[in-house]
């Protein structure tokens, strides 16, 4: 799997939220996009998942353009995501929320599902079995019947990841997955994310907590004011002059 981000530009009024952003990565791997608040990280995610059409450039998955397509079409290309502010159905159970991720795999229409005819029942059971495995992996299994709205933030972030995993993604985009978590929760989350590439799932992380990504990602891209200022291994990025300036400000001389 190869993702190419090629000259992405996004304009909100007079402001370029992304400009000339180009980098690529191959999977299965863990890649991170970091940058200060307002650097355009979430905008890039929204372009990659079809919520924003870029003014310039395109995003390619295995050489085929995916930018400019509707989000549900992008999801069908096996790209899953989470949200910086979690977007879950509060009154639905944890398990039902995760089952929503498997939506594409449950065949049939309104009538076949309600009347339980055709392949709908079998597909629903298969999806349910897969979801139970994911719930165990994410340690949500014991909470599966609880209304999702009653979970603490740490669990909600895992729930969003579980839901994205239920769609069987090839690429998983995590938007600030560690924000709001305590140190133990974020250590657990990091350990879990680290297992994903071995299952053939590539991860692209957005973080402004630099420490969290530096030990997780093999490639780090740095955005500042909508532009890519550095891309490389964590070590290269850590020592990059432009990155230090962006994070710490210019040294007065």
């Amino acid at each position: 799997m190869k993702i190419e981000i090629d000259d992405i530009g996004v304009r909100f009024g007079g402001l370029w939220a992304n400009r000339n952003v180009s980098f690529s990565f191959e999977g299965p791997s863990i890649t991170a996009v970091i940058g200060p608040n307002g650097a355009g990280k979430s905008t890039l995610f929204n372009v990659m998942t079809g919520f924003i059409k870029p003014a310039t450039g395109e995003i390619r998955l295995r050489g085929e353009r995916i930018s400019g397509q509707a989000p549900e079409k992008v999801a069908a290309r096996r790209i899953g995501r989470t949200f910086q502010i979690p977007e879950i159905c509060h009154e639905m159970s944890v398990r039902d929320n995760v089952l929503v991720g498997a939506h594409r795999h449950i065949r049939g229409n309104l009538f076949s599902q309600v009347l339980n005819i055709g392949a709908s029942g079998a597909a629903e059971r298969e999806a349910g079995d897969r979801v139970d495995v994911i719930l165990k992996d994410t340690r949500l299994y014991d909470l599966r019947d609880r209304p999702a709205g009653t979970l603490p933030l740490g669990r909600v972030r895992l729930l969003e990841i579980a839901r994205a995993l239920a769609s069987e993604p090839e690429l998983l985009l995590l938007d600030e997955a560690a924000s709001g978590l305590n140190s133990q929760e974020s250590a657990e989350l990091a350990a879990f994310i680290r297992t994903l590439p071995s299952r053939g799932i590539s991860v692209l992380l957005i973080e402004h907590n630099v420490g969290f990504v530096m030990e997780l990602a093999s490639t780090v891209a740095v955005l500042d004011h909508g532009q890519l200022i550095a891309v490389g291994t964590p070590e290269e990025v850590r020592n990059n002059e432009a990155v230090i300036t962006a994070y710490l400000g210019k040294r007065k001389s």
Binding site: F51, A75, R81, F83, C89
Partner: peptide
């Protein structure tokens, strides 16, 4: 509750 979440799940 969230059109964004629904669409990201392929709905």
């Amino acid at each position: 509750e969230s059109e964004m979440a629904a669409r990201s799940c392929g709905i």
